[in-house]
Structure formats: structure tokens, C-alpha cells
Design a binder for these strands. Structure first.
Length: 469
RNA sequence: CGGGGCGUGGCGCAGCCUGGUAGCGCGCUGCCUUUGGGUGGCAGAGGUCCCCGGUUCGAAUCCGGGCGCCCCGACCA
């Protein structure tokens, strides 16, 4: 058993994720409080997340655009709840070009307002609708308490902004994004089981009429909001005068939505799957899926490793050959574990002589001997096994952390320890505030079958309560 | 803003109480050794001890003032 450079997760969870992040060499703290420098390996993970999400967003019909970083302060002020929600965390530029600006500009905390202003110009007729836009951009929120990846002041995300002719159409589209883009991505790619539902009025996005969430569970049994979709009603359409002429010639106010997912997903991935030895990446998102570690450069092991690597790559896996033999084997083995690479193959003279090599799973640690010739056939299959096994493990973990309860005090207890599930009718806004006082929040309300309710007033709804990052 | 703590080679820290040549581990450079789970050895480079002022023959250490950072809580994707 090698010495683990990472703290025992059972000892001190709050420190643990920092260690996992830092030691796995994904990111550093930035030069300004709360900002973050993402290293090449961390960014490779993000790029795969971004590429897959982008593909799904386009499949849902949205187009990519790019909007300004700086927003006139007056834009924010047009929607009362929105300003109120974001004012405390705005960074405001008051001087530019050496002169005091007539009107300060804020660095975007989110772009509803600039999109609103512009979309009003682009929407004239019902024929222009729906208008489905998305942008990949960085935004800034001066957070009181930043945490690497989970809540940095500056973060990179995707924000979608859409305009619709009717409330029903807007609601349907927000839900479609929520399920087909976010939920499917989280489950299929990141192997993270998610709790779906609506936010309570207390937790809703500033300016939204409905906020939907995908809540993940971290290994320390806290909730983490991984993605959200908002129905904005006509709040922004009214504030920015987004109107259209309908088929009968009537001028109507439109309905808008917005939805986003950020670099927090990398944090969610780390927190959802990491263990005491570092990252564990689900194969579909892993930049490198297979590391072939050359033990010693003897008997042509390096060449053999490259040939094997090519053969496995040809079978469809992302392979890296580690021929850095002047670094000790143990150190390199630990490095690949830290980086969470799903499969490792050790190749040295002994294996070449025997014609078989150790095939090691990162998720379970399981090691088995496999004939070299079989590897190109075995590996892709093994990667899929790991992918589904990690989802099953995370799901079982979440279920084991979840307790059904029947009253507020029990919900508080369950929420402190993990996830509590209680009938929303029994909790209610008063119960919610009681929990909030103790650091436990209602993460979402959902139907008994786990689907997203159309309103808070449906019968039999359940509230999911937990501590949150 | 409330409560704790810390500023000493790149990183992590000791030294401070009781003033007297600035140390340790990791990392880095070179050579050798070892490579199958974080090898071992030899040699070496690298520091305005956060800043300003004071006390003193002498300050990383004592005194006064300032600045910065981290952790816990309140705000939040």
C-alpha cells in the first residue's frame, strides 16, 4: 500500500476536496482573491465537458453568440428583483481611460440584461420566435466566500437566453434544456446521479418565476447545484420591452428563459467521485482513458508500449504512453491515480516475456492479468463497464445518504447528516426557514417519482433538504 | 462584518517565550545508484525573516503602528 499524499476523507471532509483538487494539479488560486487558474490537465477535463454540453445545446436548437463583458449599470436596475439579487456581488468599473465614467459599468455577473436589451431589437414578429441563444463566457460575482471550482468569483460557463411567444412554450423549452441537456449530460457523461426539481421561492434565481435545478451529492454528503434552468416569465421581457406582433397583428409581450452550467461541474466531478487517492474520472469525460506505463526501458518495452497504445487507440480509446522511465515506477503509478485516469496498463520486460500485462481499474483498484493481444478488444469494453459502475456506485452512495422523514426536526437531523426527504406540505416555508437557521436548505421540491413538478402546489410533493456548497 | 489563526528560500514549516553567524523537509541543478507502488548517496544553487518606526553594542526574536493572507459563519452557479 503506497503512502497516500491525500488526507483520509473520513477525517476531515472540508479539507479533503481542496487536497484532491490541489494534488491532482487541476487548478491554483488566482492572483485576485477568489479567482482561479486552471492548469492544462484541469482545462482538458473542462474542454471535454464544454464540447459535450455544446453539442447537446445545439441539438436542442440553440445557437452560439457572444455578448459584452461590460454592462451599463442602468441595465441591471431595470428589473427590481434582479438588481437586488446581484447588487452585493457586483464589480463596478467607475474609471476608464483615466477618467471617471458618466455611468458606471458593471462586469457581468450574468447576462440576462444585455441579452434582453439586444433581443428586444431582434424580435419583432411571431416569426422571429422562438429565439434560442447561448454564449460561452466568463462572469464575475464578488463572492464572500469563494471555494476553488465550486464557487470562484470569476467563472467560466455557458448561459442560454431564449425568447418565446407563450408561457407554455417557454416552460417547455426550459424543461427540455433541463432534462435533455443537463440531466442527460450529468448522468451519461459525468456518471453523477442528480436530484431534479424546482427551487422554492426562497432559493429562486433573482427575477425568475421558476427555477429548476439538478442537484448533485458530494462524497461528504452535501448537496451541490450542478445546473439550473429558469423561467423568467415576462419579467425581463417587460423590463427590456421584448414584444412581438402575433398572427392577428396584436403586439404581445414575450416570455423568456435562461439556463446555465459552469466550471463548477469540474468541482462536482471531483467531489462526486474522488477518493482518498485523488480523482476518479468516468471514462467518457477522462481526457486520457488509458495510461500505458512502461516499467523499464528494456527489451524494447517502449516500442512495444507504443504499438500497444496505437492498437488500443485504434479500438477507440484515448491512450497515453508513459515512457518517462527515469522517474520511478511507483511515483508514476501514483500520479496516474491522482489524475483519475480510469485504466492503467503496466508494461515491462516481465510482461513482454509472459505475453500478458496487469490491467488496473482506477475506480475499484482491481488488477488483473490480460494477454497483450486481447487488450485492444478488452479495453473499450472495460471503459464502458467502469462508466456504468461509477454511476451505479454514486447512485447507491446517494441513496444510502438519503433518509425519508416525517417532521421538521427529523428533516433537520437528516439534512445535517446527508439528504433528508420530507413531504413539502409538512415542511412548508416556515419549516424551510427553521432549517435555514441551522444551515440546512431545501435543495428542491420534486414529485414522488423524482420528476420536476409544474408548480409548487401539486399534491404529494417532496422536499429534498441538505447542507449545500 | 463577527469569531479564530498566520506572514521566515519555489512550496510546507521550525526558530520567537528566554535577543548573539537563519535552519529543516519537499522541490530544483549535477553526478552516481535504483527502477514491478512515492529508491538511496554525494555535491550544489536559492532568503530584503510582510512593511515602517522604536528599544539595544546587537532584533526573525522585545515594543508601537501599518499592510496582507488563511480558516469558521453570514451572501451565492
Amino acid at each position: 500500500m503506497p503512502k497516500s499524499p491525500i488526507a483520509d476523507p473520513n477525517e476531515d471532509y472540508p479539507r479533503w476536496y481542496q487536497d484532491v483538487i490541489a494534488l491532482a494539479a487541476l487548478a491554483d488560486n488566482g492572483p485576485v482573491r477568489g479567482t482561479m487558474v486552471i492548469r492544462p490537465y484541469g482545462f482538458a477535463i473542462w474542454e471535454r465537458i464544454q464540447a459535450d454540453l455544446d453539442r447537446r445545446i445545439k441539438a436542442a436548437g440553440a445557437q452560439n453568440v457572444y455578448f459584452p463583458l461590460l454592462i451599463p449599470e442602468s441595465y441591471l436596475q431595470r428589473e427590481a428583483e434582479h438588481v437586488e439579487g446581484f447588487s452585493p456581488e457586483l464589480a463596478v468599473v467607475t474609471i476608464a481611460g483615466g477618467k471617471e465614467l458618466a455611468e458606471p459599468v458593471v462586469i457581468r455577473p450574468t447576462s440576462e440584461t444585455v441579452f434582453g436589451e439586444q433581443m428586444a431589437k431582434w424580435v419583432n414578429s411571431y416569426r422571429d420566435l422562438p429565439l434560442l441563444l447561448n454564449q460561452w463566457a466568463n462572469v464575475l460575482r464578488w463572492e464572500l466566500r469563494p471555494r476553488l471550482f465550486l464557487r470562484t468569483s470569476e467563472f467560466l460557463w455557458q448561459e442560454g437566453h431564449t425568447v418565446h411567444a407563450s408561457e407554455a412554450d417557454a416552460a417547455a423549452y426550459a424543461l427540455r434544456i433541463h432534462l435533455d441537456v443537463y440531466r442527460d449530460f450529468l448522468v451519461e457523461m459525468l456518471a453523477l446521479p442528480v436530484l431534479l426539481g424546482r427551487k422554492t421561492a426562497e432559493e429562486r434565481f433573482a427575477g425568475a418565476t421558476n427555477t429548476m435545478t439538478c442537484e448533485g451529492i458530494t462524497r461528504d454528503r452535501k448537496a451541490l447545484q450542478l445546473a439550473t434552468s429558469h423561467e423568467l416569465g415576462q419579467n425581463f421581457a417587460r423590463a427590456f420591452d421584448i414584444t412581438y406582433t402575433d398572427e392577428s397583428g396584436q403586439v404581445e409581450t414575450a416570455w423568456t428563459t435562461s439556463w446555465g452550467a459552469s466550471t463548477r461541474l469540474v468541482g462536482g466531478l471531483i467531489m462526486g467521485h474522488g477518493d482518498a487517492r485523488g480523482l476518479r474520472l468516468p471514462p467518457r469525460i477522462a481526457p486520457t482513458q488509458v495510461a500505458i506505463v512502461v516499467v523499464r526501458d528494456e527489451d524494447g518495452a517502449v516500442e512495444k508500449a507504443r504499438e500497444l497504445g496505437d492498437a488500443i487507440a485504434a479500438a477507440g480509446a484515448r491512450v497515453e504512453v508513459d515512457a518517462d522511465t527515469h522517474t520511478g515506477f511507483g511515483r508514476r503509478a501514483v500520479d496516474w491515480e491522482l489524475k483519475g485516469v480510469p485504466v492503467r496498463i503496466d508494461l515491462g520486460p516481465r510482461d513482454l516475456a509472459a505475453g500478458e500485462a496487469p490491467l488496473v481499474r482506477r475506480d475499484t483498484g482491481e488488477k488483473r492479468q490480460a494477454p497483450l493481444g486481447d487488450l485492444p478488444g478488452l479495453v473499450p469494453e472495460l471503459l464502458e463497464t467502469i462508466q456504468s459502475s461509477m454511476l451505479a456506485e454514486a447512485t447507491a452512495f446517494r441513496d444510502a445518504a438519503t433518509t425519508d422523514v416525517a417532521d421538521v426536526e427529523a428533516a433537520l437531523e437528516a439534512g445535517r447528516e446527508g439528504v433528508g426527504r420530507i413531504e413539502w406540505a409538512r415542511l412548508g416555508p416556515e419549516g424551510e426557514r427553521r432549517l435555514l437557521d441551522e444551515g440546512v436548505s431545501v435543495r428542491c421540491i420534486q414529485r414522488p417519482d423524482g420528476t420536476v413538478p409544474a408548480s409548487e402546489d401539486e399534491p404529494d410533493l417532496l422536499a429534498i433538504v441538505a447542507r449545500a456548497y
